[in-house]
Design a protein around this nucleic acid. Structure first.
Lengths: 152, 152
DNA sequence: TTGATATCATTTGCGTGCAAACGATTTTTC
DNA sequence: GAAAAATCGTTTGCACGCAAATGATATCAA
């Protein structure tokens, strides 16, 4: 063996070992991990999606807020949060009202049923988090959450 | 201070500190991290989505495969991969043909343009991975990929 | 005050992502 | 070989998620 000492990779790679394997890319793994979490969520909470639950849970914490503000709190743009809120409204879990001082704002609040739903589902949500992290040790789960938070 | 020694949490929590904060749940952080990655992807590769690129990249690695098989390789169910392939087909990046021995199978292959697109985009894809991981050290990135892989 | 700009919300269009039901084709089982 | 079961693909319906365009209202500046 004279030249070509970098002959370590398993498949096509340039002379500097610069292969591109989809399965190793962070975006691909991220998508799969997210998919698994959604599946676990659906298995435990069948009648509410993760975004819907997120909106309810955040609403419980911060109280009545404008629709777009709530969207910012749960990482949804204006178009997306609108659909989520519409569906929660149709199920009687939130109330909508115009802001007194600013007629552009659409205020969103929890109904008693909405609040009851959050309280009832929080234990399940904890289970979902635990099951998602089940393949990891407590220490690893801590690390994952921290690193993921950095790139989120 | 006599009882209630666990008084550490910042907001509502039971006597055993069991608060539920949405922002700390792995599913929520996962969704946000995924969103950021998709945004970075779109900023670099505007005319192809991550799933579309994933299908092309995997197709380059494994050669001609059936539609559902390819779906399994890129973590998409039958309904989803169909839409992705349809759009790639419409853009002349893949070819479709019936399998000789099994007339149920729809074989998918790269066209010359499809192959050219993959080769051209792989460097950009590497940049996208790097930018997504930019907030982390090389060591942290390694750890994140490993832990994420465990829960994916 | 008015005119420009910013903000809040809505709508449309497109692309995932999944469940469920379906038809067509194998493969298995008896 | 015929019935039953499995596999491959398609279609429909629903729910995000985002870009872009639009209308209504508020705020800022001249």
């Amino acid at each position: 063996m004279s030249r070509d000492e970098n002959n370590v990779t398993l498949d096509d790679a340039g002379p500097d070992g610069n292969a591109y394997r989809l399965q190793e890319q962070i975006g691909f793994i991220l998508r799969k991990a997210h998919q698994r979490h959604v599946a676990i969520f659906a298995a435990h909470i069948g009648d509410l999606t993760p975004p819907q639950f997120a909106a309810l849970a955040r609403l419980r914490d911060v109280g009545e807020t404008s629709q777009n503000q709530l969207g910012a709190l749960v990482a949804m743009d204006a178009a997306t949060i609108k659909g989520v809120i519409d569906r929660l409204k149709a199920r009687g879990l939130v109330t909508l009202s115009r802001h007194a001082g600013d007629r552009r704002r659409l205020m969103v609040g929890l109904t008693p049923q909405g609040r009851e739903a959050v309280e009832r589902l929080v234990p399940l949500a904890k289970t979902i988090t635990a099951e998602t992290l089940a393949p990891l040790t407590a220490r690893e789960a801590e690390t994952l959450a921290r690193l993921l938070g950095k790139i989120a």
